[in-house]
Each structure stands twice: as structure tokens, then as C-alpha cells.
């Protein structure tokens, strides 16, 4: 008892506590880095591309360049994600000009109606898109056309 602390801890207790606290702090470190270092709009409101087809909807990360083949009503459709932008790169629809152009800001959307393929960027809050969730100057709540 002479080498123990005033709290009644012996050296074994102290070692065990130190190990567990170290593990706890190491576990919190990545989360703390995320919360401190991530920009506000990528923290709990992350931007993703949502591609809707007759077969359902899929979410595509905006930060990963790739080409995806989805199936529309008229057939295979290519959705391309490059540099945080997405577009319907190839579609069997008769009027591809209707959905030409890139989607690169929340609120933007390209719709190929005959093919029933939609590519849009959404800002999500707590896991679901919420109206008015965006607050930065690059975000649109909707588009009129």
C-alpha cells in the first residue's frame, strides 16, 4: 500500500488504466481529425450523385472518377463522374441534347425522360436529402428550366 496512490490504485491498476486510456484516445483521434479538419459541407452534409433508373436508385461518390453503366428504359446508359462532376455520357434516347451537360452542384439534375434515367447531385443531411439543406453560395435548392 505504500506505493499505491491515494485512490487505492496499485501499479497494476495504473498500467491497465493507462493502456485502456491510450487505446481510447487513439480510437478518438481519427474522429476528431474528421470533425476538425473536414469542410462544413462534407461533414454531415455530404455531396453525392444519385442516379435513378427504372431498376432503382444508386448513390455515387462525387470524389471518385469512374464510368458507370446503368440500365434505362431504352437500354444501357453510361454515367460518367469526373472531377466532382457527373453527366449522362451516352444514352440510347432519341434526343440526347435534352440532358446534355454536367451536374456539379447540389440542386442540379439531368433527366433523360424517354430512358427514365436521372442524374442529380444532392446535399444530404443526416443521411437524407433535406430541402434547403445547402447554405453555401455554390448550392442550389432547385433548378427551373
Amino acid at each position: 500500500m505504500t506505493r499505491g496512490s491515494g485512490l487505492g490504485l496499485n501499479p497494476a491498476d495504473l498500467r491497465l488504466g493507462a493502456v485502456i486510456l491510450t487505446v481510447a484516445l487513439l480510437a478518438w483521434a481519427p474522429l476528431g481529425w474528421r470533425l476538425a479538419g473536414a469542410p462544413p459541407d462534407t461533414d454531415f452534409q455530404r455531396k453525392v450523385f444519385v442516379v435513378t433508373t427504372p431498376e432503382g436508385a444508386v448513390a455515387l461518390p462525387a470524389d471518385r472518377d469512374a464510368c458507370y453503366v446503368v440500365t434505362g428504359s431504352l437500354g444501357k446508359t453510361v454515367v460518367e463522374v469526373v472531377d466532382g462532376r457527373a453527366r449522362i455520357a451516352a444514352s440510347p434516347c432519341p434526343e440526347p441534347a435534352c440532358h446534355a451537360g454536367w451536374v456539379d452542384r447540389p440542386g442540379e439534375r439531368r433527366v433523360c425522360l424517354p430512358n427514365r434515367v436521372v442524374v442529380e447531385m444532392v446535399t444530404r443531411s443526416d443521411g437524407k436529402a433535406a430541402p434547403g439543406g445547402g447554405s453555401d453560395s455554390e448550392t442550389y435548392d432547385a433548378e427551373t428550366h
Binding site: R105, G107, E108, P131, G132, G133, G134, S135, T139, Y140, D141, A142, E143, T144, H145
Partner: peptide, 18 residues
């Protein structure tokens, strides 16, 4: 479009015009 209510931030709705 129809914009119902106000945004959580109190800022105006931002609508892009194609």
C-alpha cells in the same frame, strides 16, 4: 417549382435558372 416555408438558415431559397 413551389417553395414552401423557409430554410433552416433563414436564408432565401436559391433557384438556378437554366
Amino acid at each position: 417549382l413551389y417553395l414552401l416555408g423557409t430554410k433552416p438558415s433563414g436564408e432565401p431559397w436559391r433557384i438556378a435558372v437554366r
